[in-house]
Write a protein that binds this DNA or RNA. Sequence first.
RNA 1: GGGCCCGUAGCUCAGCCGGAUAGAGCGACUGGCUUCGAACCAGUAGGCCGGGGGUUCGAGUCCCUCCGGGCCCGCCA
Length: 650
Amino acid sequence: MFHLIEKRVLERVSDYIRNRYSVDIPVGLEQPKQAAFGELALPVAFQLAKHLKQPPKVIAAQIAADLSGIEGIASLEVAGNGYINLRIDRAYYGERLLQPEPPAREADGRKIIVEHTNINPNKAAHIGHLRNAVLGDTFVRMLRSAGYRVEVQNYIDNTGVQVADVVAGFHFLEKKRVDEVRELAKQDRFDYLCWDLYARVSAYYAENPEALKWRQDTLHAIESGAGEIAELGNVVADRIVMAHLNTMLRLGIEYDVLPRESEILHLKFWATAFEQLKERKAIYFETEGKNKGCWVMPGSAFKEEGEAAEDDSKVIVRSNGTVTYVGKDIAYQLWKFGLLGKDFYYRRLLDYPSGHPLWVSTDTPQEEKAPSFGGGYKVYNVIDSRQSYLQNVVVAGLRALGYQEQAERSIHFSYEMVALSPRTCAELGIELSEEDKRRPYVEVSGRKGLGVKADDLIDKLIETALREVDARHPEAPPEERRKVATQIATGALRYFMLKYTRNSVIAFDFQEALSFEGETGPYVQYAAVRARNILRKLEERGETLPDFSKELDCEAMGRQLASDDFWQLLLAASKSGSAVERAIASGEPSHVAKYAFQLAQAFNTFYHEYPVIHEENREKKMFLLWMTSYFRSQLERTLGILGIEIPDYM
RNA sequence: GGGCCCGUAGCUCAGCCGGAUAGAGCGACUGGCUUCGAACCAGUAGGCCGGGGGUUCGAGUCCCUCCGGGCCCGCCA
């Protein structure tokens, strides 16, 4: 509701400034720090002072005098050196909130593609992958709640070195046959087994560099798609993909489609992109220097103005004729925008328990008709900030091909890594060098097998939560307690991954992550549970939830909201639209998390201060009940966007 | 050598396009359970917003510079 008023005020003021002063400046609208100053503040007089060469105070007085009669605004006054403070008409506002809010926006048919997770299918997922998936999934939920059409892609690199190394481990190091591996893959934590194997293979390479030949042989075999080793590659990658899907589903994360590298190869996406790149002279054939014999993209294409040395150019096709990763990425990005002129075939991989189907790419036509994938208007790639250089090259590729607008709408949704706190390293039994001990955090490494596995963390969180639930609700059935503990655990985890802004490095610490108090997911869940408890208690007492639009009218709202206390609480509760809008604009899911926490704080003070059910005065009781149900719906909505469930009790 | 990010309370972090007295959680210290159950609430202490210049009516926020920390920059994949 709040953002509707904001919008209305902004429009009116902008129009007024344009007409009255013939200047077109961006009008700022703030929320005063002190409640006594009202709900909205315009510093526009300061901005105008320059243009008009008049004191801000004089201008402000004039604007305030002219700008009366904005719907929902009770008063305007000049304050300080030239602020214009606005007060919202409380009765109007409260009465409006009794009506259901209109949908955020009309879907316009344009599709937004969000790609996230993208874990190499060769080992168990770790906490860094969780940050990626939770950020991506929450951003998707934000967009969908705002009315956008979103397609969620999870790209699977099932033919890369990482898979090859594990396959080489099975084949060369452990001398295992496909059938044996297939048997192993039936066990629950096959992804853990591969985690260890991957680390062993990497260590083996380090000591026996000549063994790196295995990697090359394995890669070639996988690429050709035929033979025992290729088959092994499929077994490993397919099984691990399922493991990752399961891990993510524990956190409520689902995808629409899994485009796979194997199909990008088999359907020759690159060949098509290569033709385009050559034709439009986005890349050129280097005839001298260190890159002799390669097709390269000039550094000037992706470097800022400054002189791009020849050194900066990026090899796209090697002198042996094979394509680099970036090259394939360009082809893939073209497909996402529907610019490649080619598409995958699709097979329905599974149906989630929610009923939502998940599709996977395939290289042969299928009978079942699939939805149309790709061809997005805007593309968000959720990839950690270490890859920003490569992401820049990909975007430069689009630009060099003449796809200026698509380049603009290719967004590297970057975030910083999740590292480990020294304390957590110690808990995990990781030996640190003297140098590392002095660092604030230590980077995880899949190659070294150094890190915290996602499923381990989730399990540990559930166990911790279960102890609390057991202590509080010993009478509840065990499976029910486990369900509640799971909801609390995943709520805690998702919130933990979201509370930091994207470009802050998370130094993961068990003690912190396992905390359920203070600024955490369970704190917010608890507020929602409390709101529900009040309403449930009411019904247990034989009373029914009233029809508030009949019980409360504009006058009643005015009377109740005359209390600053109530008014501030309601105001805080009604800002969810504003918070989500801001979070989408800045691409920052942490803003929603922050808001959820503030909302819960507001409700908890309300809860503590005002006994609802025992209130004697009828109108006040109606009002308190309405506040409770309004808080509840706002908490539910916000937690829904964060992908956090609300337990039945806590 | 080049690029990106970070530096705000003891610790972990917020701070929307530059705006009024810099906020939260944890930790520390005081208090509060008479079931709408305390995974909560109320309060106290704690800040040269890394240093220095500049732009501005106004800078934690923008520009320059220095210091400290992190990440990235192969025809590997």
